[in-house]
Simulated scan of single mutants.
Amino acid sequence: MRMRTSYVAYEAAPGLTVAGALSTPTEGPPAPAVLICHGSDGVDGRGAFHAAALHEAGIATLEIDMWAARGTNRGAAGRPRSPLETLADAFGALKFLRAQPEIDPARIGIMGFSWGGVVTLLSAVKANAEPYLDGQPGFSAHAAFYPVCWAYDAVPGLGLTGLTGAPILIQTGEADAYDPPGAAQALFERLQVRGEAPVRGVAYPEATHGFDRDLPAQTINDPFAHAGKGGPVLMAFHPQAAQAARKEAVTFFLEALA
């Protein structure tokens, strides 16, 4: 589908203006849309990789830059203290998207990578969402990529109970150094047992954190790595996992936003 890209800005909170790239169909009825939230390293190509496939499927996108809005540096040292601080960015984007004539306001999802993946999951919690919604519905679907699976229900503020009921997709790499072995599967199973929302989890063998980041391999240091002990994390592109995850995300959103 042919898309038009516009560079936009909206007020996420008093004194906080967030900018982003909005891609909408050039013709046809109002389309579903997906908000894309970057990881700690900022906007780095992962959003564009997935947006291209979403556009082919007829889904509009808005990729935002949370760090530029705050004047912070890319990386673990410069980001806010908690993803909870950037929920305003996500829900401000939801309000902005609902006001666009090219977008169907009832069919808006969210996806994100690492930090953005945490935001994606936290936005599925009623207690997190309701203060921003003014009685309107929240996101219709949530797709999180390697969202630091060990942290939920372990770190204060990062609980995943009382969900909105919107479907959730979580995709991770089995070689992700943020998580101990089995952490992703344990999160999948815990959410499925609670039954508060449809949840699908996919873990890719040999894939690291940031497996869909088509850039030279990089080792970062993050205090949240290794189940909160801190330390190095390898981020290496895994072409097979990246393609599979992109296809999985498109299928998920086509079904959830139908």
Rank of each mutant, 00 (worst) to 15 (best):
Leu133Val: 04
Gly135Tyr: 15
Ala127Glu: 09
Ala144Cys: 10
Pro137Val: 01
Leu169Cys: 07
Trp150Thr: 05
Pro167Cys: 10
Ile170Tyr: 07
Ala144Val: 08
Pro131Tyr: 14
Gly165Ile: 04
Leu133Ala: 03
Glu174Ile: 06
Phe139Cys: 08
Lys126Arg: 12
Gly135Phe: 15
Ala127Ile: 03
Ala175Arg: 01
Lys126Pro: 03
Ala141Trp: 09
His142Tyr: 10
Gly173Cys: 12
Ser140Ile: 03
Gly173Thr: 05
Leu158Lys: 04
Gln171Gly: 14
Gln136Phe: 15
Asp176Cys: 10
Thr164Glu: 06
Thr164Trp: 12
Asp179Met: 12
Glu130His: 06
Asp134Ser: 15
Thr164Asp: 05
Leu133Met: 06
Leu122Trp: 07
Leu121Phe: 08
Thr164Ala: 05
Asp176Trp: 15
Pro180Tyr: 12
Gly165Lys: 00
Gln171Trp: 09
Pro181Ala: 10
Leu158Ala: 02
Gln171Cys: 08
Ala144Glu: 03
Phe139His: 07
Gly159Ser: 11
Val119Tyr: 11
Leu121Trp: 09
Glu174Thr: 11
Val118Cys: 10
Glu130Pro: 14
Val119Met: 14
Tyr178Glu: 02
Ala166Leu: 07
Pro156Thr: 00
Leu121Cys: 07
Ala144Arg: 03
His142Glu: 14
Leu160Phe: 06
Thr161Glu: 14
Cys149Met: 13
Glu174Phe: 12
Tyr146Ala: 02
Pro180Ala: 12
Ala183Leu: 10
Val125Gly: 05
Leu160Thr: 00
Ile170Trp: 10
Ala154Gln: 15
Ala177Pro: 09
Gln136Asp: 13
Ser140Met: 13
Gly162His: 01
Cys149Ala: 13
Phe139Val: 02
Glu174Ala: 15
Ala151Asn: 08
Phe145Lys: 00
Lys126Phe: 06
Ala175Cys: 10
Ala124Arg: 01
Ala141Asp: 05
Tyr178Lys: 05
Pro180Thr: 05
Pro167Ile: 08
Ala129His: 06
Gly135Ser: 13
Gly182Asp: 15
Cys149Gly: 04
Val125Gln: 06
Ala144Phe: 15
Gln136Tyr: 11
Asp176Lys: 00
Phe145Met: 13
Tyr178Arg: 04
Val148Arg: 14
Cys149Gln: 10
Val118Asp: 02
Ala143Pro: 09
Gly165His: 04
Asn128Gln: 04
Gly135Thr: 04
Ala143Ile: 11
Ala166Pro: 07
Val118His: 02
Gly162Lys: 00
Gly182His: 08
Pro131Val: 09
Ala127His: 04
Tyr146Asp: 03
Pro131Ile: 00
Leu158Val: 03
Ala143Cys: 14
Gly138Ile: 09
Gly135Val: 13
Cys149His: 11
Val119Ile: 13
Ser123Val: 06
